[in-house]
Nucleic acid binder design. Structure first.
Lengths: 330, 330
DNA sequence: TAGGTTTATGCAAACGTTTGTCTTTTTAGT
DNA sequence: ACTAAAAAGACAAACGTTTGCATAAACCTA
């Protein structure tokens, strides 16, 4: 520390923090010296003393891939703007890791934790500690239903509803659906949105048109083939995932079935490649980045409100239907 | 702290660390109590005292997107395995942010820093501090040439060379190249690989076949149209980016030119969508994940070797050519 | 039982800040 | 010039650990 060189102790601290009760002259001198000796403030020590680490913990199932990396981008951006450093962990879709990571984040004295749950996480036990210590906790995207905790999600139901409504408006009458695993909320809600949109517009529901699968590309091809084998094939497909819809598109091209004239297609997630297919794929954007931003903002609010027990808030983002050529029957 | 409840002080510390000179009985008692009171060790305090934060700083231009998020995945995986928490920053391709982030990471007392540089970073000044404090510094992917510092990159030259050689082996004789901005090393090296592969196989170099652009999809379509307008169009295109090659593919499809029979295509990066196009795109995989892992391993080595000034190492990963239908003229 | 080990624990300093309080110096008001 | 008030700075405690050293208890061995 630069103390000895000058003549002072804690004055240095105040000087560096531009405290009011330090004369301009010494303030200058301290800063000056700081530059010269390449003074490195020790954030750890400050954090320890102040009880504020300026650390925000984030845990996701995995970082790679379009969705989570975009959310992370949003998180980092607004967090750093508020002076927070972010620490990241991956659960690798594994509850045990989730437990360990929470432990680790708590030890690091993070001031808050943003979490997107692993697939097979069904209880809240390992978050009790966080709760007990009143550390702001915000779930995003993968949340636990019916839990009184802050969270930010997108309205999957609405996204699906809009997508299907759009198809109906384009004149489609027989709309199929690729549904994901129904024990996952996101897929369940998209399915509901699909059903309700049909109902709202007086279209009949044909169970044959709903193909439930794991949403991979090859599931999409298989699903499409099944649909084409029906007595009366659909004139549109709404998929809960972009991956499976692209599989469907491949089948249609191979069979020379025109998109969107013969069959219109809409996916979900607005993956990078949806703008690269031919025709480009209509898809529902999940506002990844905004989700990250909202999560951090929610965390910041909770931090403010620390004293009076903050009543958990639930932010529901509006998805955006991005209409592209795969569903535009102009 | 749990001290008062029992009868001890620093014994608790040793007990929790399973220090040898603590009786089994008290060790048990301490752990027991720790569970009961939900004791949270304060990593900050320990870090301060020990001078070891167990923090690893990572700075990338941006997190979202295929490449960096995959590298991050690799980094996080092996770092956490070694007990390191990782702190991430984004420079947003901006040198000023880069400076700020380095500062921030240093303050946080990270034990090492992994960096992928912003596009417009051309000097090393803001890393001097890191160097002076002998904090392990590892560059990955975006590095500064001719600098005596540890780094891990992939052999772009080799990747391009392999790709072009593959095309030649498939019988292509007139191979075009979409080249990226030549002031960026990665693109320059890929260009060199292209040139050398042609030369090595006795093919003539036609300047008309090299289209330099920004590598976006639309650049690819434009480039492809230019190439098709030539008196003698190419029979293959090797692009330094998957995005531009997909643009080219769109043009070819629209014109009913067959891929790969009439024109074969090879891209670079193995983006997610390369397996989703029709036909699927041959591409050069950049070993993103391995790059992250290697960077961390290098950091760990440097940490070991702290005392004896570690002589910087440079790891060059071998890219992998993934041959798919866009270039397979069976 | 004294002397010597071993084993188990306590003491206190230290890590680098921040901050409440107390002291000194300066300024100003009459 | 004397006092009150304001300004600038110093002291020391505190944050929660770790760790070298000292101490106390227990166990041997002769």
């Amino acid at each position: 520390m630069a103390k000895e060189l000058n003549i002072s102790v804690s004055t240095v601290s105040r000087a560096l923090n531009n405290h009011t009760s330090i004369s301009e002259s010494t303030r200058k001198r301290v800063w000056q010296l700081a530059k010269e000796v390449n003074y490195q403030p020790n954030h750890l020590a400050a954090a320890l003393r102040k009880g504020r680490s300026n650390l925000l913990g984030v845990m996701v199932p995995h970082i790679e891939g379009h969705f989570f990396s975009s959310v992370m981008h949003g998180i980092e951006t607004v967090a750093s703007k508020s002076g927070f450093n972010i620490m990241i962990c991956q659960s690798n879709e594994n509850v045990a890791n989730e437990r360990k990571n929470i432990e680790s984040l708590m030890n690091a004295q993070v001031e808050g934790i943003l979490v997107s749950l692993a697939r097979n996480t069904h209880d809240f036990k390992h978050f009790d500690k966080v709760d007990n210590l009143a550390i702001p906790l915000v779930f995003f995207d993968r949340v636990l239903e019916g839990l009184n905790v802050s969270s930010v999600i997108i309205d999957d139901y609405l996204g699906a509803y809009q997508a299907v409504t759009h198809l109906i408006e384009q004149g489609c009458q027989r709309i199929a659906h690729f549904a994901g695993p129904q024990h996952l909320n996101i897929y369940k809600n998209r399915h509901r949105g699909y059903l309700d949109a049909l109902r709202a517009h007086g279209l009949p529901l044909d169970e044959q048109l709903v193909y439930t699968c794991d949403m991979r590309t090859e599931d999409g091809t298989e699903g499409m083939e099944k649909l084409l084998a029906l007595d009366v094939p659909p004139d549109a497909v709404f998929s809960s995932s972009d991956f499976s819809i692209v599989g469907a598109m491949q089948v249609l091209k191979a069979r020379q079935i025109r998109v969107p004239q013969d069959i219109a297609l809409v996916g979900f997630s607005n993956e990078t490649f949806t703008s690269l297919t031919e025709p480009r794929l209509t898809s529902v954007d999940q506002r990844c980045e905004q989700m990250g931003q909202s999560a951090v903002k929610l965390f910041l609010e909770m931090l403010e409100d620390r004293s009076g027990s903050f009543s958990p808030r639930r932010i529901v983002l509006q998805p955006e239907l991005l209409v592209r050529e795969s569903s535009l029957r102009t």
